[in-house]
Design a binder for these strands. Structure first.
Lengths: 205, 205, 205, 205
DNA sequence: TATGAATGAGCTTTCATTCAT
DNA sequence: AATGAATGAAAGCTCATTCAT
């Protein structure tokens, strides 16, 4: 009972190693050897803690999910009861750019994961799971907003999906063509997009 | 003279082979052997027409760029003089889902390309080039809209980037988690988002 | 009967192409495609005139043999009856460095050929044939010298082989480490070596 | 701890495998697979110990350098103070033919290396380095001889280069056309050549 | 004669994974 | 727990040679 979980600590190291290398070299380029080096371990030990490279990726995805949602829930408390503020607390949390550049690996990693989801069923499953969780969370907040505006919540889920898509899109641009968007401009732009979605009269134009 | 030159045709075959396999297996999974099989050629011949696998990818990107923009320019003619209609002609063209499922490879491929752009400099360059072209095109139409609404065009480029991001996001969701969004719901949702962007009072909220 | 021998001309081109590329890239590096390009032909045509790459090499060796010996025979006429002059006419001819650098390919090529002779039996055979011819020629002249000095010709063939070896050695150094020997210093040095061989009392020291 | 490190031993095996196969098949013919088989290893393992095939070659060259010079230094001690004996200790050591045929690979290998030096810059560099070391060593001994004979040492380096060339030439003949020279005849012939070089009056004949 | 498309065998190299220690 | 040697199955790419035109 000395160290409560060497094991968990080691796994965290490895997962972090994968994220860092993957964000720079892609998934295929993230060799087990590279991951190990980044985590200050040996290749053999990586396979002692994880059955396969894919297993590391899945663990990474779950870690990201917990981390990002966790960061948001903190903010939600500070948002009070205003539905708009709550919704924007979520979008802002997701789009926040770490000034130290620390989130770049996260966004790049996320893009890489999405690409892997296309052909790795296990990854797609986890990816979908996380995305549904996100859409559901957005949907919940969005319904609050719609109600407060006296609007129908009928198609709220579609709208939530659109918001999620927009967020993913910002990730993608930031990661793959960082020069295309001005830093700091995404969060406010997304707010206006969301306002547009909410204000829209179904069937208009 | 030797066999009549089918050089361009062959190259097209190979590029198409890459897109199809890449959309199903990712870039690393699209081996030269797979590409060749998909194009009904031998691996050696693939390298007769392209110096490297990466060269095929770059050719594919240029082909996609030409194809997508071409499809749009056709529609633009039908949109007449209404700035809103012109802008929506573009977004609709980009988001249109081929009912036969034919565009799925394109969107999946695009996501894979974005992921490769992260660590392959040549790909990133081409990716940025194409994205800039898209943002510029959106920007042009957006300015028309803003003027017609009597609004400032000062930050039009940021808005254009946001719109491009939203489109990329839809691609990503469609490719990696198709079940998350209802088919057909993206195009109208994007319209509303764009309206929101345009209607926004800078500095509000 | 129009052109007496297009064929021979073409073959000469190809052989020259092999020599040039081989002198720069080695035998393995001298691709049929490279040879063809250097000869301003197409790869297919190369195999129309030669059955195989090796066949070009063998033709090259014969061409070199004729060329080098031919150059020497010219000089021999000018050497008159002095046995020493005749012998040095040969060594000088072999060691002469083209001031335009034109013989560099020849020496480099010769070194490459020697290396191929190790494992290509057909090449080794031709190489030996040429070397024997050279040693025999040297031997003939050397006997003249030995007689004129009143010395035994018993071991003249060994001495001739040693002289041939020294010449090969100069080729090798010139080709692989040109900076090791001063240009122009080889021919006189070789003369002195030969003099030493001739002057030696068998069994001395 | 893992298996006890046999790193150096393994590297030696591989280098020896390269020398053996290279002496029989040339450098291009010495595939990594062949080398591995000769060393009783798998091809993958070869690349575990060496980054590239070229790296094995460079290691081989350094090994040869150390080995040959080492063999000579032993003899030098036995040569006492006589400058001639010292010089001949060197040439004899270099030309010594292992009666078991054991040095044949070495000489053949050396020829192959010289041929590679032509077009592989890294190999040329190492080759030059070794040759310079050899010429320098010869030069040192030669100066001793020249002084003891009361002769000028002005052009000793050129003479040393000529001696080195003659040695290389013997290697070449032995490797590529072993039948051309009688076994055992090279060492004495070289001695006489060297004597001729030393005895020569500069500018004579 | 001449072309250059096409083939297929083979090359070097990489890497996830296993395993003796 | 930990190491790093070892494996083997690919991968991308090259190239002599053939062949339809």
């Amino acid at each position: 009972m000395a160290r409560p979980s060497q094991k968990e600590e080691r796994r965290r190291q490895i997962v972090a190693g994968l994220l860092r290398t993957m964000a720079q070299q892609g998934y295929a380029g993230a060799t087990v050897a590279t991951i190990a080096r980044e985590a200050d371990l040996t290749p053999g030990l990586v396979h002692y803690y994880f059955d396969s490279k894919q297993a590391i990726l899945l663990a990474l995805m779950q870690g990201i999910g917990r981390g990002v949602l966790g960061r948001f829930e903190e903010r939600l408390e500070r948002a009070g009861d205003d539905p708009w503020k709550q919704l924007f607390a979520l979008t802002d949390a997701l789009l926040e750019r770490d000034p130290t550049g620390g989130t770049a690996p996260l966004q790049a990693g996320w893009l890489v994961i999405a690409a892997e989801a296309i052909h790795q069923p296990a990854v797609r499953e986890e990816y979908s799971r996380m995305l549904f969780a996100l859409v559901d969370r957005i949907d919940g907040l969005l319904r609050g907003v719609l109600k407060s505006e006296g609007r129908s919540t009928r198609s709220s889920r579609s709208l939530a999906a659109a918001i999620a898509a927009a967020i993913q899109g910002v990730y993608q641009l930031d990661a793959a063509a960082p020069s295309a968007s001005k830093p700091g401009s995404s969060a406010p732009a997304l707010r206006h997009m969301v306002e547009g979605l909410v204000a829209a009269q179904p069937g208009r134009r």
